[in-house]
Computed example of a mutant assay.
Amino acid sequence: MNTWSETERNRVRNEIIDDLDEEFELGLDDRRMDGAGNAEARAFRKTYFHELLRLQGELVKLQDWVRDTGYRLVVLFEGRDAAGKGGVIKRITQRLNPRVCRVAALPAPSERQRTQWYFQRYVEHLPAGGEIVLFDRSWYNRAGVERVMGFCTDEQYEEFFRSVPEFEKMLVRSGIKVVKYWFSITDEEQEARFGARIEDSLKQWKLSPMDLESRVRWEDYTRAKEVMLERSSIEEAPWWVVQAVDKKKARLNCISHLLAQVPYHEVERPLVTLPPRLCNEDYVRQPTQDSMIIPEIY
C-alpha cells in the first residue's frame, strides 16, 4: 500500500471516480446517476453527458458524410502517458461504425520494420475513401519516446524532422485531411493519474515500465515536445493543443474542435421501414440443448 498525504489521496480518489464515470457513461444515454464529488462537479456532469451525446450525434453525421463523399480523414492523438488520449478516442468511436472509423494503435516496430523507411508501417493504416483513421500515437513517436529513451540516433531524429513536413504535405495534396492533437497535462495531474492506476487493480495493467520511466524523465519529454511542436507544425497540418487536466472538458473541447475542421453536413437518409417477417406454416423452431445454455447466475 502506498503512503499518500491527504491531498494526494484526494487527488487519487477523484481520479478513480473519474475512471468509474468513464465506465458508467458507456452504458448510459440521457439518464445519469448522482455520483460522488462536490456539487459543482455533479452539476457539470449533467452538462457533460448532455453535450457528449449531442457531439456524438454530430460525429454520426460526420461519419455519414465521410462515407457518402469518399472523404479521407486522419487524426493524430499525441501526449504524455495518462494524458487522456484513449478516453477521447473511446468517446469518438463509441457510436460510430468501426468499418468507417477505426483506430490505429501500433505496437513497437519489429526487427524487419526497423529496417524499413520510417513512415512505411504507418502508411498501410492510412484511410481509403470514406474512412476515418484515429492514430493513438503516431509517427511522432520518433520525436517523443524514441528521442527521450534513445531508441533512435541523432541522425534519424534530424532526418525525421526533414521528412515529416514533406510527408504530411504529400498526404494533404493527395486529398487526406490531417488533424494533429497534443494533450497537455501538468506534472501533478499525471502523478495523480498514475497514482490512481496503482491503487485501482482494474487499471494497473495500464502502467508499463516505460510509463514509470516517463515520470523520471518529465523534463526530457517536455523539451522533446516543445521541439516537436515548433519544428513540425505546418500550415497544411498544424498542431492543436488540448488542455487536458480536466478530462471531461478536454473530451468535449477536442470533439467540438475536430467537427469544426471538416466541412460536413447532414446526409439525407432513406426512410427505413421494417419489413414483416415471413411465416411458413411448416416451420418449427427446434429446442436448444440444455448443455449449450450458459448458467443463468444473474
Results as ranks from 00 to 15, higher is better:
K247M: 04
E111T: 11
F161I: 10
I255Y: 05
C279V: 15
W65M: 03
D21R: 12
G79L: 11
E8P: 03
E25A: 10
T153R: 05
K61H: 13
V148Q: 05
E268L: 01
Y122C: 04
I234R: 05
C279D: 14
D282L: 13
G150M: 07
I89V: 15
P276M: 09
I185M: 05
M33V: 14
A108Y: 10
V262S: 02
S184L: 06
G70S: 04
L26T: 15
F161C: 07
P295F: 09
Q204G: 09
D290G: 13
H265S: 15
S291R: 12
G144C: 12
V145N: 06
R102E: 00
D187P: 13
S5Y: 04
E219I: 02
L106V: 11
G70R: 04
D19S: 13
Q190T: 07
L126H: 05
G79R: 11
M1V: 10
L55T: 03
K61E: 06
C279R: 10
E189F: 02
E8D: 11
Y157K: 11
W182K: 02
R137Q: 04
R197L: 00
I176P: 00
F119S: 00
E158R: 15
G195P: 05
E40H: 14
I198R: 06
E230H: 10
M170D: 03
L259Y: 10
R91W: 05
R9E: 15
S163C: 09
S233Y: 08
P238G: 10
W218H: 00
P98C: 06
I17W: 13
P165S: 02
C101V: 08
